[in-house]
Write a protein that binds this DNA or RNA. Structure first.
Lengths: 362, 362
DNA sequence: CAGAACTGATTAAGCGATTCATCACGATTC
DNA sequence: GAATCGTGATGAATCGCTTAATCAGTTCTG
């Protein structure tokens, strides 16, 4: 049905090898094609409408020019949290720039069948987004010698990871609230099974310590990344007696912060007067809340792009030593903590305290 | 490096053909394998850790079990509008259910190189999300005989499409506002190049006509799908003299509605008292605005899933006649149009006016 | 001026599956 | 008892492309 290399060769009066070398830029120095033949081949290919067959090439070379992306759950894009969507976008852009293709997988870290389906000869390497630590997917990759890079995972030796500086993010957010004069600052934790939760809390504690403020574990709530968690934890806060109640919250993410704001709003409190709040991720949603939300910005797209770069380097055999980049975070100050009134973002959102140290070690 | 069918055959003491038929369920009735041999093959495969090579299979069979998805722009997921993310999610889930794989493409409808890259032997069929009408991608698919299904595209003969009932959506939204007693209702249009824009406007007009209300083209604004467009158009509305100013808006989507609400809020007006508003898409964002937003729900995930079903049916040679399903819409009533006060959605969001006719013809 | 080096090109052997054509052989049928 | 049939299995061709091995000339080089 489709035009093959042989038909082009016949029309051009040359061999298939010459056509292959000419049209699909061979790496072998053994086979050379002169100007004249080359021209004839181009003409023949154009005349027949030849398009090379990547499947056949894959089989012959053992390389597919496809990289796989494994997302944590099937609803990764419908989920209200834009993280997966944004990271995929960063990955996709870099994949296109590098002339690779992207195969999208999903279906739980613990699903062996899905892992096996992903880790097959169709992909040259895979990117694991928010992998669960004990997933069988790691073993699958290793046994098939498929290189992989994890995004947001503990920096285990022997694996490549891309992370963001969660510790510094927590510190930045908390420090900002301290500078606004707050003395009782609550922290709403993210989910247990995500590697970012602990370092962010450590950053929070470090900032308190640096300001010689006490660390009160009763001010640390398990809220999770959904707005409901923020809402519930904020209600718990509201039920605390005046005087003991924190005047500020460092929330797990923007959605969680919105939940908290909602609870305070419904209780008739106003923000930032009665409550200062800082979110995390700095998604577009932070510009849509009322008041607009101060948030820690994590370079999500860049993390995706970096993972692709590291992966492609390895796939193409460039001898890169294992490394664990930690991307810098910054704080986007908006109206929710009273530092500044910014009513028509995102244009006048300002970035402060930019941390350029991207080799921070927890 | 990897274990092949031949090695399994050797260990099991049979032929490669027998192994192929046993392990990868052959469709050919010519080749049969008995229980005993079958068992030996299973044992050998398990012992060697054999995994079949999909690339080789693709080459031999001409089928890849991969379907491609082309998104309209690179930022499709980062874009504030969750449409692409949601439709991709619906597609992905159905693709997994059908034991296919998903290759993700992007990069502008008018980019011939990208189209060519997508429409190659690696995919059995493609889904085009919001394709631009004159894109070269259609010709590419046709010349390579690759079946495709478009999501949200004019129902051209000779192509398969999946649409939602935009006309009815527009009618429903407008009718709801009319029932609330509004006599001057503005419509904020979506983008020109999207096929949903006109039918929604037609639905809007039809509802007005049915209520014997005049159609005033000065109340129809080109706002687009971004919140800025809604914001700007609402400002135009605000500058209209009292009495002539519409008391309600049917907005292009949820984001656009939020922009409009923002403009009214900043002008010190309150919603729904001074302005009733209905959004479109009913994304999660509609539950996050203040007040929560009444919105037309479009079954986005289902549209993605349906596209996959139609495509797979064709890829697998089931003889399906061309058809153009139009999925029903419904109205999710929340607080933004005063019909009902719902302060803690989405749990108490109610669906009304559900349209079961999915063969509505514009 | 013989051997080396370079240029231009071909042949053929894979890559790892699938599948068609074929065959051996015991059981059934006429 | 010859023809037919069903079962179990194999060998070899094939899918479209890459690439190692090879070769025929031509041009340097010492």
């Amino acid at each position: 049905m489709a035009v093959t290399i042989k038909e082009v060769a016949k029309l051009a009066g040359t061999s298939a090898a010459a056509v292959s070398a000419t049209l699909n830029g061979s790496r072998s120095k053994n086979i050379r094609v002169g100007q004249v033949t080359r021209e004839r081949i181009y003409a023949a290919a154009a005349q027949l409408g030849y398009l090379s067959n990547p499947v056949a090439r894959s089989l012959a070379t053992g390389k597919s020019k496809v990289i796989g992306v494994m997302l944590p759950y099937v609803e990764a894009f419908t989920d209200h949290n834009p993280f997966c969507a944004q990271v995929t976008n960063g990955i996709l852009q870099e994949v296109v720039r590098r002339h690779y293709n992207l195969m999208l997988y999903t279906g739980a870290w613990m699903n062996g069948a899905q892992s096996a389906m992903m880790v097959d000869s169709r992909v040259d390497g895979v990117i694991l987004v928010l992998p669960q630590p004990d997933s069988p997917v790691f073993l699958k990759c290793e046994s098939r010698h498929i290189p992989y890079v994890s995004i947001l995972r503990d920096q285990l030796a022997g694996t490549w990871t891309v992370n963001s500086d969660d510790y510094e993010g927590g510190r930045l957010a908390t420090d900002h609230l301290i500078r606004q004069g707050h003395r009782r600052i609550a922290h709403f934790l993210g989910d247990d099974n995500v590697s970012t939760t602990i370092p962010r809390m450590e950053g929070y504690k470090a900032a308190l310590r640096a300001a010689q403020m006490p660390i009160d574990s009763s001010l640390i709530f398990k809220a999770g990344f959904d707005w409901r968690g923020g809402y519930a934890s904020a209600q718990a806060l509201l039920s605390m007696p005046n005087g003991t109640r924190p005047t500020a919250i460092f929330a797990a993410n923007d959605l969680c912060a919105e939940g908290a704001m909602r609870a305070f709003r419904e209780a008739g409190r106003s923000i930032p007067e009665d409550l200062a709040i800082v979110g995390y991720d700095d998604t577009w949603f932070a510009t849509m809340t009322q008041p607009t939300l101060t948030s820690v910005r994590m370079p999500i797209e860049e993390m995706g792009a970096l993972a692709v770069q590291m992966l492609v380097d390895r796939v193409e055999g460039r001898d890169v030593p294992e490394h664990h980049p930690v991307l810098p975070v910054s704080l986007t100050v908006r109206a929710s903590c009273g530092a500044k009134r910014a009513e028509t973002p995102p244009d006048n959102a300002i970035h402060a305290f930019i941390n350029e140290d991207n080799h921070h070690v927890k």
